[in-house]
Amino acid sequence: MGTKRILVYTENYLPSIGGLENNTLLLCESLVLLGHHLTLLTPQKNALNHAKFNVLESKSLYLFYNQVKNHDLVMINGGVSFKIIIPSIFALKPFMIIYQMATLFKDIRNNSLKTKVLNKLRWVLAKLAKANIGVSQYSFLELKKAFGRHNSKLLINPADPTFSNQDDDHYDDILPKTPFQCLFAGRLIEGKGVSLIVDAVKEINKYKEVIHLHFVGDGPERGFLQHQNTKHFIYYHEPVSKEQLKEWLKKVHLTVIPSTSHIEGSPLIMAESLMMGVPVLVSSQPAMVASVQKSNLIFESGDLNDLIKKLNFLVDAASYSNIKKYCKLISVDYSYTNYIKNLKAIINV
């Protein structure tokens, strides 16, 4: 109980753009809001400073150990990290691990002997954690299977307080109209299903202007998107601030998260969309299926025909109206109020 000196460690941080980076910022700001003294430690180059907490950029294990010694609790955001957990063990400091990917402590990219050994080591270190924290119901259940109820916790990634439709009640009544506006917001990498959603919208728009698809973000697929012929009604936009993203969510009917090979945990854009009253269409990755739990908002990962089928269903005004009501009901799980309450309980364990 009471004020703690907390060290948050993450491999990636701002100005890099991604869900982990933004979630780490929200985590740190929330811990400060709860009255804790916070230091963020990261190897990220040119890490952004913050007015409310100290940001340290380093790869030095000596510095890691000294920082751990001077704090009451270590929180690792992004999974098991040997370089910060080992110093925590030697310094006899408690540590907690937040898993942003549904694969948790496992590397599933290959089945080599080295990978198996490292996965086992990660499991051993995770078992020593004061808390293993999942950001989705799916991850939480998997953690309970691995470590039991005692040190397995749930902390669903919330929408930043910026994202609220409380002042925009008129938006609740908007129904689809031609054209239907879809949004992809995030890192533009192929594993996120960028080309898949492009192909789906091209097929739907082949004979009639039905859907406008907007990409907001940056990444390797940026060039591909910039060269899309606008006759297909596919548009690329530069990355935006939280406030600007909120304005985008006021204008669109649907957010699409079509990830294929990139394994998702609980994407922030899902929380942000739901809190703004915008339905999300997701690929059939376990964590997102457990979060959405509605077949018409889930398509088989990598399946172009199923994606087209679900988009055509949602374009229908009557279908969309019912889906929108459902999404408003589940949005409470992603509220910042719930996040703060659960974070406080976890820290005080």
Rank of each mutant, 00 (worst) to 15 (best):
M1R: 13
K325A: 14
A47M: 06
N22M: 10
V216F: 02
W123A: 11
V124E: 02
K116P: 00
L26R: 08
M75T: 13
S112T: 15
F184R: 02
A290W: 07
Y9V: 03
A290M: 06
N165Y: 12
I308S: 07
A287F: 04
L25C: 06
V282G: 02
G186S: 00
Y62H: 10
H37W: 05
K251G: 05
G219K: 01
R149N: 14
Y13F: 15
I17Y: 14
V282C: 03
T115Y: 00
D160C: 10
V216P: 03
N205C: 05
F180K: 02
N66V: 07
S16W: 08
Q166Y: 13
V332R: 15
D172P: 05
E209K: 15
V315P: 04
I197M: 13
F64S: 02
I76D: 00
S295V: 10
K120W: 02
A345K: 15
K328D: 13
A271T: 09
E264F: 07
L92P: 01
V198S: 02
A91C: 06
N296H: 13
G265P: 05
T103M: 10
M75P: 05
V8H: 07
H50I: 03
S261K: 12
D160H: 15
Y320W: 12
A51E: 14
M101L: 10
I156Q: 09
S58K: 05
L143Q: 06
K127F: 11
S164V: 09
E57T: 15
N342F: 09
V252M: 07
N23Q: 14
V201Q: 01
G19K: 09
H214N: 15
H262V: 11
V201A: 02
V8M: 09
T255M: 08
K83L: 09
K344A: 14
L196A: 01
P286D: 11
H237Y: 15
